[in-house]
C-alpha cells in the first residue's frame, strides 16, 4: 500500500507540473533539436534584438513608451523580469496542487515560495538552454549565450552562471516526470528562514524526497548515483540564487530601472 501511495503522489505531482507550466523540457527539447516546423527566431545582436522586440516581445509584454528610450540591457532585463513573474505565478499554482501544501500555515506557504521560486525557476530554465543559448518568448525566440555575455556590466554577468549550472544539470538527463518531483522538493523545504511549523513541512519534504528517490531508481535504473547528485544540485541552486539576489541588489542601486513589485517582495530581506 505504501508503494501505491508513493506512485500516486509522483503521478499527481507530474500532472500538476504539466498542467501549470507553459513550457516544459519535452517541448523545449523538441524546439531546440529542430523538430518543429518553424524554428525560433535567433537573437544574436542589437539588430536581431530590435526585430524580435517588434514582433515576439511586443506580443509577450506589450511595448511601453518608457522602455523604448532605455538601452538594450535595460529592455532585456525588463523581459527577464516578465518571465520571472510569470514563472512565479505558475510555480504558485503548481505548489498549491502539491498534496498537503495548501494545508500548511499561510505564512509558511509564503515563506516556501519566497525562498523556493528562484531555485525552481533556474532548475527549470536549464530545460530551455543548450550550450549556445536560451529559448525565450514561449519558445518563439532563441537568444544566444554570446550575445547575453556581450551586454555591458552588470547585465552581461547575469546569465552566464545559469548557463554553467544548466550544462552540468542537463548532463543528468532528467525528464519532466523527474523534474516535477525535483521542483516539488525544492519548494517543500523545511529549512527556509522564518518557517513556523517546521515539523509539518519536514514530513511533506520527506515524503516528496522519498518518492523522488524511488522514481529515479525506476526511471534511471542504470544511474545509481543520480539521487545524491540531485541532492547536491539543491545546494548549488541555493548558491546560484544567493549570487543572483546580490546582482539584483546591485542593479537596483546603480541602474535606472524598476523592479517588479512581486520580485521586490521576494528579494526584500531574503538573504
Amino acid at each position: 500500500p505504501q508503494l501505491a501511495d508513493q506512485k500516486t503522489l509522483a503521478k499527481q505531482i507530474h500532472e500538476a507540473y504539466l498542467k501549470n507550466f507553459n513550457m516544459n523540457k519535452s517541448k523545449a527539447r523538441t524546439i531546440l533539436t529542430g523538430k518543429t516546423s518553424t524554428p525560433p527566431f535567433v537573437i544574436h545582436d542589437m539588430e536581431t534584438l530590435q526585430l524580435a522586440e517588434q514582433t515576439l516581445v511586443a506580443k509577450m509584454v506589450g511595448s511601453s513608451a518608457a522602455l523604448l528610450n532605455k538601452d538594450a540591457e535595460v529592455r532585456i532585463f525588463h523581459c527577464c523580469q516578465c518571465t520571472s513573474v510569470e514563472t512565479v505565478t505558475e510555480l504558485t499554482e503548481f505548489a498549491k496542487s502539491v498534496p498537503g501544501f495548501s494545508n500548511l500555515d499561510l505564512n509558511d506557504q509564503v515563506t516556501l515560495l519566497k525562498y523556493g521560486v528562484h531555485e525552481a525557476f533556474f532548475a527549470m530554465l536549464a530545460s530551455c538552454m543548450n550550450k549556445d543559448g536560451l529559448l525565450v518568448a514561449y519558445g518563439n525566440g532563441f537568444i544566444t549565450r554570446e550575445f547575453l555575455k556581450s551586454l555591458r556590466r552588470p547585465f552581461g554577468e547575469m546569465m552566464e552562471p545559469k548557463f554553467q549550472f544548466a550544462m552540468k544539470f542537463n548532463s543528468l538527463e532528467l525528464d519532466d516526470s523527474d523534474l516535477a518531483l525535483f521542483v516539488a522538493a525544492i519548494i517543500c523545504c523545511g529549512d527556509r528562514p522564518g518557517l513556523v511549523n517546521v515539523p509539518h513541512i519536514e514530513r511533506m519534504q520527506e515524503s516528496i524526497v522519498n518518492v523522488l528517490h524511488l522514481h529515479l531508481k525506476s526511471n534511471h535504473p542504470d544511474n545509481g548515483f543520480l539521487f545524491p547528485k540531485l541532492l547536491q544540485k539543491l545546494v548549488d541552486l541555493r548558491q546560484l540564487v544567493t549570487e543572483h539576489a546580490q546582482l539584483i541588489q546591485e542593479i537596483k542601486k546603480t541602474e535606472d530601472t524598476s523592479l517588479h513589485p512581486l520580485l521586490q517582495e521576494i528579494y526584500r530581506d531574503m538573504y
Binding site: 509584454v61 506589450g62 513573474v85 510569470e86 517582495e265 526584500r268
Partner: peptide
C-alpha cells in the same frame, strides 16, 4: 503579511493575474 501581499494574493486567489 503586508510585506508579501502579492504572494498572499496569488496563494489565496488564483484568478487574479499579476500585471507585467
Amino acid at each position: 503579511k503586508e510585506k508579501h501581499k502579492i504572494l498572499h494574493r496569488l496563494l489565496q486567489n488564483s484568478s487574479s493575474p499579476v500585471d507585467l
